[in-house]
Design a protein around this nucleic acid. Structure first.
Lengths: 356, 356
DNA sequence: CTGAAAGCGCTAACAT
DNA sequence: ATGTTAGCGCTTTCAG
């Protein structure tokens, strides 16, 4: 690494003069400045900002008088609508409160998450937001040196961190009840079993042994189950189509379960993206939505309103998730007191559109 | 700020012992350890990782023997398919090469971009990728202390940085030619004029005065223009429907230009998202796609394949954009030599699907 | 106009 | 088992 000392030696001056030249602050002879700049160019000098920050510990105010507060957001996937909308909303909510957000993709991999904390979040973030983490709260706490942390969509009971949850159980129950209220009596569920999101099985048997990637799934299934029970339908009789929660997988799952699908008059899908694939898959096998069969999703991503047919769905209040996450985190950052951890379930509404 | 010294004073030990306890490394009396931990808790001590990094300058290898290389990606929006897919692909390409990616949303705002560089990228990234930046290359260079930088989709000729471009001109030309080849003779263009992406007019009149947010638009229009010229169609006769490049805006634009739309037998949309809104808007006014009118998009986002009807589009090789961006950047990071700047235009193909 | 010294918080190496 | 020393790259202070 090239230091100011090196540049100084090359230019025949001290490191101090190099510093002065490069920041253009104090008076330096034009000739000296030129020599220094040449030397810096020649050696490809780059300001080592790490040590700059070390220095800045000393001076209370930053050079520009701004607050350099930063939130780290670890999110499972960036290429799908729900997490990317959430990331965007969090960025914007944080910005309104004077925080910069840095987003990192975990792809639901524990090793990635550790790396994120070690390399970045822990290095310079004032707080962390973890969405669908595979790490235990205690590991996050330890790796992050007890940085304030908010978890999203992590329902493991042993966690002792602030948590924002999507209304999986209540939302799913409301979905089934809605379909029932429109006269559907043969409601199937899509996205039920098997590995979900990604096939991330078989890793990480230690710290997160208690973690089930299908946690959110279970809560949504539980909501369905409750609804059917209230409606007097045997849970065992409910058709469940297994598929990962992606559009292409869901499309294939419909093709592979055509007969089962034809016995239904409505399908409730575990996510909107799944529903998109289902609607496409239904067209592939000659079924019209909603005329032949109703389809309902879960999430409330923007694109659902634009699709043809537009998607009836459990619309989670995603801006609320983002806002609460940011608020809770900043509260923790500002206030070191040990107030009790919070656990907030986001609102939802049934967005009644064309598909059901 | 609470330092190890403070904790040590509270616990009646030296800072060194505090360090040892907190990292659980060396042998410490359980009793001492307990006292230290209590003191740390009481004072709300948090490891100052800034100085950790300062320290790490000294020891060549990191504590875990890993390389802590990081790429900063500044992207205009995270809640739309194209940029979020791109961000995801860049993250994954970088990871394969041992780099962690931190993503930040600019929302096409110069002040945000400056903040991103100052707060984050400049602090600890080895290199930057800027997508649709509003800053000039020279400002980026200066703010980032000459960090290696790759620009995406920035066609300003004065820039002297590595650049990856989407094939706007060739892609648009190919789109028009494709529609023509299917017998369409009344092709309209959607997404043509007015502020695009966001209404970010009126800011930043100094450094980026030379920057036109409609730059990409102009290149795509130029491609259309070339195609029509070759086909013997007067450019002045081509219907152009102005709308920002979002689905909801595009949907409204169709409703507001119903008569003009009805005179067309095909519509070429500036982005896939625009096309989604257009298809929906066409249904709103009773036109069927592709029976009554063909629709074509530009980008090649995944969802286009799942829609009903599936979207015929200029499918940019987005993985190639991501891969080249990462490769070029890492090349710059590794090799300080001043090889000439590169300028790569990504491949594309016409994804021939149902909508046209 | 230029440079020497001190020190930011932390920890490896060494001393007690 | 615990403490002391030195130093990471840089910049503020103050002396030449």
């Amino acid at each position: 690494m090239v230091t100011m000392k090196d540049v100084g030696r090359e230019a025949g001056v001290s490191a101090m003069t190099v510093s002065n030249v490069l920041r253009g602050n104090t008076n330096v002879t034009p000739e000296t400045a030129r020599r220094v700049r040449e030397a810096a160019d020649k050696l490809h000098y780059r300001l080592n900002t790490t040590s700059l920050s070390a220095r800045s510990l000393r001076v209370s105010t930053s050079r520009h008088g701004r607050n350099f507060s930063t939130i780290g957001l670890a999110i499972f996937e960036l290429d799908r609508p729900y997490p990317s909308q959430l990331a965007s909303l969090i960025s914007q909510a944080a910005e309104k409160r004077g925080y910069q957000t840095v987003v990192q993709e975990t792809r639901i991999n524990a090793e990635n998450e550790r790396s994120i904390i070690e390399r970045v979040s822990n290095q310079f973030c004032d707080g962390l937001i973890f969405s669908s983490s595979r790490l235990s709260a205690s590991e996050i706490e330890q790796l992050s040196n007890h940085r304030p942390t908010v978890l999203l969509d992590d329902d493991r009971p042993q966690q002792d961190l602030d948590t924002i949850l999507t209304p999986s159980e209540a939302g799913a129950q409301a979905a089934i009840e809605y379909l029932w209220s429109t006269g559907k009596r043969h409601i199937g569920i899509v996205g039920g079993l098997g590995e979900n999101l990604v096939n991330a099985a078989g890793e990480d048997n230690d710290s997160s042994a208690t973690f089930d990637i299908n946690d959110t799934l279970h809560r949504r299934l539980m909501g369905c189950c409750n609804a059917f029970e209230k409606l007097g339908v045997q849970w065992e009789d409910v058709p469940i189509i297994a598929t990962p929660w992606t559009d292409t997988d869901a499309r294939k799952a419909i093709a592979g379960n055509a007969d089962l699908v034809r016995s239904c008059d409505a399908l409730f899908c575990m996510t909107d993206t799944t529903a998109f694939g289902v609607i496409r898959g239904l067209k592939d096998i000659g079924l019209r939505v909603p005329d032949d069969i109703a389809v309902m999703g879960f999430d409330g991503i923007d694109m659902g309103a634009i699709m043809t047919p537009s998607l009836t769905t459990v619309a989670v209040d995603i801006p609320m998730v983002a806002q609460k996450a940011v608020d809770l985190l900043i509260e923790r950052i500002d206030d070191e007191s040990d107030r009790e951890r919070q656990r907030i379930v986001a609102d939802f509404r049934i967005a009644q559109r064309e598909s059901a």
